[in-house]
Design a protein around this nucleic acid. Structure first.
Lengths: 279, 279
DNA sequence: CGGACAATTGAACCAATTCAACCGAGGTGG
DNA sequence: CCACCTCGGTTGAATTGGTTCAATTGTCCG
């Protein structure tokens, strides 16, 4: 029987990308392979060390178990070191709604930071390891370290933008666009964390994807085959290769082309600098 | 010709709820009618005063003008004192995607806080007034005032939760549910800020609603008439009265089951300690 | 008044759902 | 070892909810 650590570090990677030696499970921030993508990004080394000392260690979350549940009052936020976690929340009719997926290097539980309890749960899709960051200490440290504070705000903001991106795509009546967008999003997030932007393993089931995109499982399946038949994707079970990123972007609607000046809308003039965002 | 201030303060209110004397446009935090719902909620009076001094004054945003645009680099966040603002972002094919609506007392521009530039724009639907909060000063003050820091985090978290709620509703293939949910959401947010939870004026056009919900305008119209025919809503132009909230909640799917524990509150932990959710 | 725009309604069409059968992989137990 | 079951995934055929196209009304505003 293979040691579980193998699956942990490589679950979301194609075989070729595996980094065999890097056992990140126990590393503190300054030694962690995620340090350049994770919360402490941009911190000075002593700041990073302090942040690392804050961590109350790593935790391993087996597949299909909850990291936290709706209604839990969190006193920590979590940084995902490896594995994949899905964010869910329960609808009144008993089934769950998938809100998003959390990839390695990303942060979990921010949405509960100022609140007393969390409205959504987090389930490991693929065996995961997380760092725990006590909220009180994190807030204290943000007060002392402007750079960390700023970084935290950036991560907050990203989460919002990410949700916004999901909104633009989900339920636009276009299943193909939704799937394409999700795949591009996952690819680029993995790429941002140092992995291949072209090939990756989907850790989530078709059911989860369908739930997230607000479409039926059968439709997800059909869209995969359609994209495969068009030669845009190579699909082998959950291993995905993006063959034609341009086409993918085109069908996805390419949400944040936001930077184009739109004629037909008035400009207040006062205070707001439009200053041609170069195209 | 009626003075514009009338429209500003009452645009989102049914006539009966109007508060004629309250000209909030120039008030500083300690005197502002929004102070109990807005950013400084829970602050001590001297803290509130300090925050108020930070404000670089109020700005008025005429209808259909941008508060900020995608690509702008914001050095302020904004607090909406009156009016309604929609958050939008431009898709590559030239049309816009409505990401959400911002109601009085809510905060704008958080999503740009840590970033270099903003990916989404903000347009006044109804003539709006905002307070400007220089980001640098706000961050500085958060470092000095833990309560404010915590409050800011809460507002961040709410925005995320709000996006999540939108996600669960949009594109569930059920237009009626989407509309019902939006109306309930608006109603409860207005209620949370001291207005009627039953009757209100929709400030947004059917087109905006359709865009936001990811359905066609015609469908929005049909859903309105359907809900009206069922006796659930009273619809008069943009004036809405919710006659049967239970039915509304039922069709809306009532996404976060957890949220039913606290009636009248969309957000997690609105200052209220909500321990133990049943179920 | 006339033009532009918001909203509503009707009819035809189409994409995605639903219901159903099927396949392969994995696990279990006789 | 094979029979049996379950589960995730794919595919087919029929149905439907929402879109699209089109026409109508009403309202605001120059």
């Amino acid at each position: 029987m293979p040691p579980p650590i193998i699956r942990i570090d490589t679950a979301y990677l194609p075989a070729v990308d595996r980094v065999p030696g890097a056992s990140a499970a126990t590393a503190r921030c300054p030694d962690c392979m995620q340090r350049h993508f994770c919360l402490p990004q941009g911190l000075a080394s002593d700041e990073m060390r302090r942040l690392g000392n804050l961590l109350s260690g790593s935790r391993s979350i087996p597949r299909h178990t909850y990291l936290f549940r709706a209604g839990d009052s969190l006193d920590c936020v979590y940084v995902l070191k490896s594995g994949v976690v899905k964010l869910v929340w329960a609808t009144s009719d008993g089934d769950e709604q998938v809100l998003g997926f959390c990839l390695p290097g990303e942060i979990l539980g921010l949405e509960a930071l100022g609140a007393e309890s969390c409205v959504n749960g987090a389930v490991a899709i693929e065996t995961a390891t997380v760092c725990e960051l006590p909220i009180a200490a994190l807030e204290q440290m943000c007060r002392e370290m402007p750079r960390l504070q700023h970084r935290l705000h950036l991560l907050f903001a990203r989460q919002i933008v990410n949700s916004h991106m999901a909104l633009t795509v989900v339920g636009k009546g276009n299943a193909e666009a939704g799937l394409a967008s999700l795949l591009l999003n996952l690819a680029s997030r993995l790429k941002a964390h140092g992995y291949s932007g072209k090939e990756f393993n989907l850790c989530m089931s078709r059911t989860d994807i369908a739930n997230y995109l607000g479409i039926a499982v059968e439709t997800v399946s059909r869209m995969f085959t359609r994209l495969r038949q068009k030669g845009v994707l190579k699909v082998n079970k959950r291993n995905i290769v993006i063959l034609d990123p341009d086409y993918m972007r085109a069908v996805a609607g390419e949400s944040p082309a936001a930077m184009r000046a739109r004629p037909g809308c008035v400009y207040p003039g006062q205070g707001v600098r439009a200053r041609g965002f170069e195209a």
